[in-house]
Amino acid sequence: MPYLKKLLGLLFFPVLAMLGGCDWVLMRPSGDIAMQQRDLILTSTVLMLLVIVPVIVLTFVFAWRYRKSNNRSDYDPEWHHSTQLELVIWAVPLVIIIILGAITWISTHKLDPYRPLERIDAQRTMPAGTKPLVVEVVALDWKWLFIYPEQGIAMVNEMAAPVDRPIQFKITASSVMNSFFIPAMAGQIYAMPGMQTQLHAIINKPGEFEGLSANYSGAGFSGMRFKFHGLNDGDFEQWVKKVKSSSRSLSRDTYLQLEKPSERNPVQHYAKVAPDLYEAILNRCVENNKMCMHDMMAIDASGGLGKPGTINIASLDEATRARLGLNDQPTRNYVGAMCSPGNPLGLQLPVTEPATSPI
């Protein structure tokens, strides 16, 4: 036994050394949304421990006090009820559940990722008329594409934003479902092909932070990481100028090449971006001979194509079939690119958006 105690003591220090390398970024975030989410986690944990800790402690107390060898404890085989004990057993968990329910209801609305920010941090409210920085995010296999429509630039596996300026992320994917996550700034949110999710967030401290995919998406998932730079206004402007000095342009053809699966891609900057590229990615019509989803929905909302739809058909061209690896597959026809009805009914046709959670 003495040797076992010494061995356990020696193992204690290597464990501490390994834990010393852990970065508790979720508990030490740099953005206000992540800070509120951290407080929600801590509050919920403490409330649940109010029941768990006493139960665990009393389990050992009762086991020790009423052990067989303890002849001094009272023995009452007829005891079966205590009103006071019943009140404690039922009232305390009930109160905690009510408190947790109220906190969950409030935080679900307050931390809704689709909700524009109302404050910069706990001490500062958001000035009226503040314009958020819009960033369009595309989850590719296996890399991240960021498009800045206001600045007219794009980059792969790198992004930046000014400190204390709200950011509106518009997020989609090219193929399979993924998850966009910058732990220091906000909770994760899913990215899905043909759908758009949103995230409103802010970074309150300058620095370099890690972004990653939080949802397994295939062979290159583990390398699907990027750097997020929190910069002051002047440094952000310099960063934008640096990206604009690149010789690359992100055309539709360039995107189709970039979309091909690849792993651990280096950072790439694009000084120009094809107009409406993100909308084409979202609506699954980057190829010139494909009909966009919003046009399909507009036609369906107007009653469909009827018999003309059986005639106006097309198929993927040879280059697209080769890129998608479909050369050995049967050729399939689909409704070709057509003029949309121009929304004659004045219908609003939003992209389907899934429900999300604040954490």
Rank of each mutant, 00 (worst) to 15 (best):
G194F: 00
K242A: 15
G152E: 10
A102V: 11
S249T: 13
G223F: 12
R252Y: 06
K205F: 00
A280P: 02
F62G: 12
P113N: 09
I96H: 04
D32V: 00
G31V: 00
N289P: 03
I189V: 15
I41V: 15
A280Y: 10
G325K: 11
I98E: 07
Q196H: 01
G304L: 11
R252S: 14
E118V: 08
V57K: 06
V88G: 11
R225H: 11
I33T: 06
A271E: 06
P183I: 01
I167Q: 04
C292R: 06
I313K: 15
L324P: 07
F236I: 10
S44Y: 06
N157A: 03
W144L: 09
L305N: 09
R321E: 07
D76K: 14
A319F: 06
P183N: 02
I171P: 01
G223H: 14
I171A: 01
P193L: 05
L26P: 00
R115A: 00
R321T: 05
K307C: 02
D253Y: 10
Q37G: 07
E210W: 01
L345E: 13
T320S: 09
I299F: 05
F13N: 00
E259Y: 10
P2N: 15
P261F: 08
D164T: 02
V51T: 04
P358V: 08
R332D: 05
L140M: 07
M155I: 02
R225D: 06
Y3S: 09
M338N: 11
M1T: 05
C292G: 10
A63C: 12
N283C: 05
L250W: 02
G342P: 13
L256G: 10
N312E: 11
Q238A: 14
P2V: 10
G325V: 09
Q329W: 11
Q257K: 15
S213D: 13
T45N: 14
A201R: 00
P132Q: 07
Y334W: 14
W90M: 08
T59Y: 14
A274C: 02
A322G: 00
G211R: 07
R323E: 01
D23P: 00
D235C: 01
A139F: 07
A139R: 04
F146K: 11
V61K: 03
Y66S: 02
M159C: 10
E136L: 12
M177P: 03
Y216A: 12
Q84P: 01
V25N: 08
K5N: 09
